[in-house]
Design a protein around this nucleic acid. Structure first.
Lengths: 165, 165
DNA sequence: CGCTGTTTTGATTTAATTCAAGCATAGTGG
DNA sequence: CCACTATGCTTGAATTAAATCAAAACAGCG
């Protein structure tokens, strides 16, 4: 799934992509803070706020809950650094490294999102994302494969991680 | 105070500025996620993690705590949108509007941070921040005053808010 | 098959950065 | 009280990274 915010004129910032097992969408106030969309066949389990507060009432629940939100905050904080201070190459390298880690280092990363989604996640245009994949491909750091170029094979995880900085 | 993250080569992203009364720095794991620095005479009250977990155990505490972290997350999420998708003018307008709101619409906003701090908060260079203040000044949307140009007077709150989008 | 949406690639433009002065302010010490 | 220095802000000129504009190729689909 993708969660994102929109500007009135249609510019979009994707906060994060959610993989199976992820928890997201913690809200408190009366209004939703962002939109969530499935980009593949998805099963979602909903949790009521009341149950959340109940779960927090016992020590084990509080700890788990603290872990969850710390993870969200941590991701947001490092993503701010990326959006504000990284170059296009660094952003794309960071993106593939993030996916690689979250999928636990598969041989092939199958991207379910489009180039535009990736661009809107990284604060770039889809053309720049495409060109940057080409740059990393030409540097032999990754392969771009499959009929729709959505299969990514990491050839140089160390080099990519260095770029991601 | 300012809280920020650094890249190895010195590039800096300021997560947020903290005003009197703000709570910040919620951490969970063994390592700190960012650096905090005072940019003015500051008194800081520390809270132990244990006390936090205790406070969460009762319903009132849990609610307050949920409010706190929701506020942090919300700020981070909207800041991601700003960093990834706003222009320089929109960023600076959003910055002065944020300060105006948080200081509860004073006649004069006295900035305690430098132009570089603002730049590192908005994902710009200090020169661009300076130029952008000049643009908004020339548009009669704000005044830049004081011996060191750190006093900002908002002349057109509505217009600035529209720019901030 | 034609239609639609996606990706790539090329040419051009532009917003913001970088490089470079020049000033103003505040602090320091003689 | 006055150089002297350090720091921060502004402004101008040149550069550049990424955006925009444009076109072609391709896959998937009804």
């Amino acid at each position: 799934m993708r969660t994102y915010k929109l500007l009135p004129d249609g510019r979009r910032q994707i906060n994060s992509f959610h993989l199976p097992g992820d928890i997201f969408g913690l809200e408190n106030g009366a209004t939703h803070r962002f939109t969530a969309e499935a980009i593949a066949e998805t099963k979602v389990r909903i949790m009521r706020r009341q149950n959340l507060l109940d779960a927090m009432a016992n020590r084990g629940g509080a700890k788990k809950f603290l872990d969850l939100i710390t993870r969200s905050l941590k991701h947001a904080e490092s993503h701010m650094l990326l959006l504000g201070r990284n170059t296009a190459v660094e952003k794309v390298a960071a993106f593939v490294c993030e996916m690689d880690e979250r999928l636990e280092h598969p041989n092939v990363i199958t991207l379910l999102m489009t180039r535009r989604d990736i661009a809107d996640y990284l604060g770039l245009t889809l053309e720049t994302v495409s060109r940057t994949f080409a740059i990393l491909r030409d540097k032999k750091m990754l392969q771009v494969d499959g009929p729709t170029n959505k299969q990514i094979v990491l050839l140089d995880r160390r080099g990519l991680a260095e770029l991601a900085a």
